[in-house]
């Protein structure tokens, strides 16, 4: 089963990378961009009996390793 986990800094958390990218976009002529949040995404191929099991495994691995829940949120999507 294929899945994608995306990880982003939590809304209240300062995202200096996103801020730097927004400033660079403005210098590149894209002043329309008001905010950028810089995150990461992971494509995984995993074995699971069904979607529910896959989702539960992905949540567990996101909490334990892929994201740091103190400062990051994550989203799981299954193909």
């Amino acid at each position: 089963m294929r899945a994608r986990v995306t990880v982003y800094p939590r809304p209240r958390i300062l995202d200096p990378q996103g801020k730097a990218i927004r400033e660079a976009l403005a210098r590149a002529g894209f002043a329309q961009v008001r905010e950028v949040r810089a995150g990461k995404s992971f494509d995984l191929d995993l074995t699971a009996a069904d979607e529910a099991e896959a989702r539960s495994l992905l949540e567990e691995m996101s909490e334990k390793l892929l994201a740091n829940p103190l400062v990051e949120d994550y989203e799981i999507s299954l193909e």
Partner: peptide, 10 residues
């Protein structure tokens, strides 16, 4: 407890 973010100076 806690976590580390990028330095505010980048």
């Amino acid at each position: 407890p806690g976590a580390m973010l990028r330095n505010r100076t980048l």
